[in-house]
Amino acid sequence: SAWAEVTADTGLRLDAERAEQAAATARLQHLHRSGQAPEGDGPAVTRLLTASAQWNHARAVLTHVADHAPLPGPEARLLVVMLTLRTAQSGVGNLVGQDLKGLPLPDPEHLVGQLVESGWLDIAGTVDELIASRPENPTRIGVPSLTPDESDPGPFTFGRKMRPKLSGWAQRVVGEKKLRKAKTSADARLLALALATGVSLDGQLGPEGEGLGPEALSSWCAIDPGDLPELVDRLTAADWLTEVAVTDTAV
């Protein structure tokens, strides 16, 4: 833009302004994707969902993924949950390499490749190109099973404005500093996300503080119910949970 000002060339100035606007848009999209906020806007998302409808929508996504997961195991489940949130509503969305690198996945390239081979995920280009993509040039992805048509509006009832809110919130929970500092694995991050769908404003788990059912939690997290106590201990050690007991009927 400085050169445009020096030369007083209107065409150059307009091109420069468009380029600056495109770069700003790319940066803003990346902030939203990663659950951050533009400077001065405060936190874009918090750990808590503050309305029962949001709880229901988040749990609906976890339940849908549990019922239709294309691959076994918590690492694949975490990735599928995040991609489902990214593509819910239209069946398509944008992804950059950092979205994958920010998850606790030892081999994200392999997982993405498996999802593509299974037919669950479509990507523009190659897996390597996706991993290398940046916010200013994201990779287009698609999930055919989430693409609506005239006879099937899709599995979710939340609107277009709610989808990025849920996606950004989940990104923030999964990437929370305490969980990253403790180097928690995919199963612990999934449990944190699942528990966060039922945290009230006063920090209690479940309606009236009665906790959440272990069967649903283990199903959402692709783990055995017997693994819940150890994962709760890990989240407690990371200072993500406090005063939580695991029983046969509730966490």
Rank of each mutant, 00 (worst) to 15 (best):
S1I: 11
E5L: 13
T10H: 12
G11T: 05
L12C: 01
L12H: 11
R13V: 08
R13Y: 14
L14D: 14
D15K: 06
Q21V: 11
A23M: 12
L28P: 03
L31S: 03
H32C: 14
S34R: 14
Q36K: 08
Q36Y: 02
A37S: 15
A37E: 11
P38Q: 09
D41G: 13
G42L: 09
A44K: 06
V45A: 07
R47D: 12
L49P: 05
L49A: 07
A53D: 13
A53V: 14
A53L: 14
Q54D: 13
W55P: 00
N56G: 07
R59L: 13
V61M: 02
L62F: 04
H64I: 06
A66I: 01
A69T: 08
P74T: 05
R77H: 04
L83I: 03
R86G: 09
S90K: 14
V92W: 02
V96C: 14
D99V: 09
G102R: 00
P104D: 09
D107K: 05
P108M: 08
E109I: 07
V112R: 04
G113A: 06
L115F: 11
E117Y: 10
G119A: 13
G119D: 10
W120F: 11
W120V: 09
L121N: 01
D122M: 02
V127Y: 00
L130I: 01
S133D: 04
S133W: 00
E136K: 03
P138Y: 10
G142V: 14
P144I: 10
S145V: 13
T147A: 03
T147P: 07
D149S: 08
S151F: 12
P153A: 12
G154C: 04
P155R: 00
T157H: 11
R160G: 12
K161Y: 12
K165W: 12
Q171P: 08
E176P: 10
A182W: 03
A186R: 00
L191D: 06
L195T: 00
L195D: 02
G198Q: 08
L201E: 13
G203W: 04
G203H: 06
L205S: 07
G209T: 13
P214H: 07
L217A: 01
S218R: 04
W220S: 02
C221E: 10
A222N: 03
D224H: 05
G226S: 08
L228I: 15
L228R: 02
R234W: 04
A238R: 09
A238H: 08
W240T: 02
E243V: 05
V244L: 13
A245C: 07
V246K: 10
V251I: 15
V251Q: 02
